[in-house]
C-alpha cells in the first residue's frame, strides 16, 4: 500500500531519521529512477546498482534538498548522471568484447514479432532493447523525453546541452527507433496499461 502523505511531510520525517518515511519516498519514486537507470543500462545488476546509489545519494543530501527542482527531476538527474558514469565505466571494460546490437537483433527475430505470440512483457523487452541499442546521447534524450515525459527544456538542463540539440537528437533517435520497431508500430501492437508488467 502506498503512503498517502505528501512529499514535504515524508521529506521532513526522513530528515529526522524516520526510515519508514524514506522507504515510502523510495517506493514512490522507484519508477522514475527505474525508467532512467534501466532505460540507459538495460535491466540487470548495473541498473539496480545505479538505482540504489541514486537513493543513497539522495539520502545523504536530504538536508541540502530545498525543493528548487521537483523531487522527480532531482532524482532523475542523479540517476542519469550515475547511469552515464556507469556506461563510461562499462564501455571501458566490457563493450569492446561484445557485439553491441546482438541483443536487439535477437529480440527482433521474427519469432518474437507481432505475428507470433508476443505478449506485452515481451514487447516491452523488445522496445527497451531497441532503446538500449541507441547511442548514449540519443538514448538519454529518449529516456528523459519519451519514457519520463520531461519537457525539452528540462531534458536540456539535465543533460547540459542546448534545447536545439535535444530536439535534433530526439528526431534522429525516433527515426532510428521507427526503423527498428516498424513491425510493432505498423501493426498497432501496443500494450495496454493493464497488460504491461515492466
Amino acid at each position: 500500500m502506498t503512503d498517502p502523505r505528501p512529499d514535504d511531510e515524508l521529506l521532513a520525517l526522513a530528515r529526522r531519521g524516520d526510515e519508514r518515511a524514506f522507504a515510502a519516498l523510495v517506493e514512490r519514486y522507484e519508477g522514475v529512477v527505474a525508467a532512467t537507470a534501466i532505460g540507459m543500462l538495460g535491466r540487470g545488476d548495473d541498473a539496480d546498482d545505479v538505482g540504489q546509489e541514486t537513493f543513497i545519494r539522495f539520502h545523504r543530501s536530504l538536508d541540502r534538498f530545498r525543493g528548487e527542482a521537483s523531487l522527480k527531476t532531482y532524482l532523475a538527474h542523479i540517476a542519469m548522471n550515475l547511469s552515464l558514469n556507469a556506461l563510461r565505466s562499462r564501455r571501458r571494460t566490457l563493450l569492446r568484447f561484445s557485439g553491441g546490437d546482438d541483443a536487439v537483433a535477437d529480440a527482433l527475430e521474427p519469432g518474437a514479432g507481432p505475428a507470433g505470440e508476443t505478449d506485452a512483457a515481451e514487447l516491452k523487452r523488445v522496445v527497451q532493447h531497441a532503446v538500449t541499442a541507441l547511442s548514449e546521447k540519443h538514448r538519454a534524450v529518449v529516456v528523459l523525453r519519451m519514457f519520463q515525459d520531461f519537457s525539452t527544456r528540462e531534458t536540456a538542463q539535465m543533460l547540459g546541452v542546448p534545447e536545439g540539440t535535444v530536439l535534433s537528437r530526439l528526431s534522429r533517435a525516433m527515426q532510428e527507433l521507427q526503423t527498428r520497431l516498424a513491425p510493432y508500430v505498423r501493426d498497432g501492437f501496443l500494450p495496454t496499461p493493464m497488460e504491461t508488467t515492466r
Partner: peptide, 12 residues
C-alpha cells in the same frame, strides 16, 4: 511515442 511511453521500465 505511445509504444515508447507504454514500454518505459517502471520497477526494479
Amino acid at each position: 511515442g505511445a509504444l515508447l511511453r507504454a514500454s518505459a521500465p517502471d520497477r526494479f
